[in-house]
């Protein structure tokens, strides 16, 4: 469903290569995890896939369901079914969380030629999904992410994902800064969305999250490349020995 081939990315502003040939294919229904040291390019990969400005793709391709993602505007990628849970969710003063979500849901529906969701229907669905993430009515009313704790922000990302029902979900360190309970909530939220048609790319530093969201494939990213791929046992190896063994092995 998501096919990344030989992706090379540089910064637009300065002459700096960040991704140096990433190859990765996520099949429908599968969970792929990416682990790797800080600065290896994991967030950059997620940003480039979702269309953030400031990066230049110098080689390679990224295709989702046969569509060239790199040709699309960020909103078109979203409407095509791509979702990124941000490592650092953005605060938007003055825009209510609920308004934001309804605007997003309806914009995507419109882009796909579907009818807008009625206010009543939307309210019913969001209440139910917010509840399972322990997001209260107050948090839905507040401006997007403003004054939210780290954990609240991450839960809010998962709520957005649940409302938008994307086909391909990328989670960028959604576990960082979460305590055990919050991580469980987030993992449950993700697991509830798992189905045969949906793909996941879970970026994380820690094995911890992968105890709750069982990956099918684990990739190790270093210096802008996927240097090793394997089963869930690869995550355990990282947990026990750190990255140095793997990195020296592939060097």
């Amino acid at each position: 469903m998501l096919e990344i081939k030989n992706l090379h990315v540089e910064l637009e502003e300065e002459d700096k290569k960040i991704l140096k040939g990433v190859d990765l294919t996520v099949e429908p229904g599968k969970v792929h995890a990416i682990m790797g040291p800080n600065g290896s390019g994991k967030s950059t990969l997620s940003y480039v896939l979702s269309g953030r400005a400031g990066y230049e793709v110098t080689q390679g391709s990224a295709v989702m369901d046969g569509v060239d993602l790199l040709e699309l505007e960020p909103e078109e990628r979203a409407a095509a079914g791509l979702f990124l849970a941000f490592q650092y969710p953005v605060e938007i003063p003055g825009v209510g969380n609920m308004t934001f979500l309804r605007t997003a849901v309806n914009a995507q529906r419109k882009a796909r030629g579907q009818d807008e969701m009625s206010a009543a229907e939307f309210l019913k669905v969001i209440r139910e999904r917010a509840k399972s993430l322990k997001i209260d009515a107050e948090m839905l009313k507040r401006p997007v992410n403003v004054g939210f704790s780290g954990g609240e922000k991450k839960r809010n990302e998962i709520l957005q994902m649940a409302m938008l029902e994307p086909r391909m979900c990328i989670l960028d360190e959604t576990d960082s800064g979460l305590d055990v309970d919050a991580m469980k909530l987030v993992a449950d939220g993700v697991n509830a969305l798992r189905d045969d048609g949906r793909g996941f790319l879970v970026i994380t530093h820690y094995q911890r999250l992968l105890d709750h969201i069982k990956p099918d494939v684990v990739h190790i990213m270093a210096d802008g490349r996927i240097v090793k791929s394997g089963g869930p046992e690869l995550a355990l190896e990282v947990e026990h020995n750190g990255y140095s063994d793997i990195l020296s092995e592939v060097a």
């Binding site: 953030r52 909103e75 941000f86 605060e91 938007i92 997003a104 849901v105 914009a107 957005q160």
Partner: peptide
């Protein structure tokens, strides 16, 4: 903020 909104599908 603009990118965040667009990444959620808002034109």
């Amino acid at each position: 903020a603009l990118f965040y909104l667009r990444s959620r599908g808002v034109p």
